[in-house]
């Protein structure tokens, strides 16, 4: 699936999910992002790649971090940005997603960055939008969050330089996590030697093994010798739906502490998509410790989002070798 993401030349037209994208495209995104990291470091943080383009941030779910980094990324590429924060309760009062889409199209925009509570929402929009408009998925339900996965890959690459030998553990609420799904697809496509998911049975979705991962229910076993630990945020609603007894018990068995992390590879890095819950899934000493690369992830987020925007909407600058 996801072929809708590519144009006839096999280049990115939309960015909806990692699943279905081949390795060369992912590498292309990482290389392009690396070239933008230098812009970030300059005093004048602007490139004219998307000058005259209009980008709409269409957020049906609240988000500060992701929306802001998309906005910054667009501005650094010289695009005009509009933010639409749509309270789902008011949008449900009448206007359908399709109607809203066509209304925004009529404003002659070039790109929509979409976050929505329904899995497949970005895919749906890409199917129905006018052909000149590009869609970037900023998180659709429990499905994918592909820019997060790419910034995770960028971060891993900066520290480890090669995906092939890596053992990576993704820990926590795999069931509800779009980050986990996108990370899994990215890591398996980039050839990591082993991808593990770690969590209690209530938070591991059925059939996840078929995505090419190994399931662990014990944190200590799951982290043994891993090179990268990706912690996921635990939503407090999970207690209400009887998936977990309490925050305390969760932290006791699945919280990342110095003690547990000791079983990982001595040079293992610790990642988290943010925002972190200190004392719920991660201990402060780890979050602020030397193995944490959480803030590096945030910085990479801007470059990755610039790369994806430039590759889908820009006039192919900088020119990269084509994917397949």
């Amino acid at each position: 699936m996801n072929n809708i993401q590519l144009d006839q030349q096999g280049r990115l037209k939309h960015f909806l999910g990692i699943e279905g994208l081949k390795r060369p495209i992912l590498i292309d995104i990482l290389n392009t992002a690396a070239s933008f990291l230098s812009i970030d470091a300059k005093a004048v943080k602007k490139a004219p790649i998307l000058r005259g383009k209009t980008i709409i941030n269409l957020f049906f779910e609240p988000s500060t971090r992701t929306r802001t980094t998309f906005e910054l990324a667009a501005k650094r590429l010289s695009a005009d940005v509009l933010n639409f924060n749509i309270d789902t309760s008011s949008s449900s009062k009448g206007e359908t997603l399709i109607d809203m889409l066509h209304n925004l199209e009529a404003m002659h925009c070039d790109m929509f960055i979409v976050r929505h509570k329904a899995g497949g929402a970005a895919y749906f929009m890409a199917q129905h939008v006018a052909p000149h408009i590009h869609i970037i998925n900023a998180g659709d339900g429990q499905h994918e969050h592909p820019t997060q996965a790419m910034l995770d890959m960028q971060t891993i690459y900066q520290y480890k330089k090669d995906f092939a030998p890596l053992q990576v553990a993704i820990v926590g609420d795999i069931l509800h996590s779009r980050v986990a799904r996108s990370d899994i697809h990215a890591l398996t496509t980039l050839g990591a030697s082993q991808v593990r998911v770690v969590g209690p049975k209530t938070l591991i979705p059925k059939g996840i093994e078929e995505l090419g991962v190994k399931v662990f229910n014990s944190l200590k076993t799951g982290l043994r010798d891993v090179d990268v630990v990706i912690m996921l945020r635990l939503q407090r609603e999970r207690m209400q739906s009887a998936l977990l007894p309490s925050v305390f018990e969760y932290f006791q068995y699945y919280g990342l502490t110095e003690d547990v992390l000791a079983v990982a590879h001595p040079e293992a890095i610790v990642m988290h998509p943010g925002p972190i819950n200190r004392g719920v899934e991660i201990d402060s000493t780890i979050a602020d410790g030397k193995r944490s690369v959480i803030l590096q992830q945030v910085s990479n987020g801007i470059a990755i989002r610039m790369a994806v925007m430039a590759m889908t909407l820009g006039s192919r600058i900088p020119e990269q070798k084509e994917g397949q």
Partner: peptide, 11 residues
């Protein structure tokens, strides 16, 4: 099943 997991839809 695997499809619901893959598509991120509640099963």
């Amino acid at each position: 099943g695997t499809i619901s997991t893959r598509l991120g839809l509640s099963g």
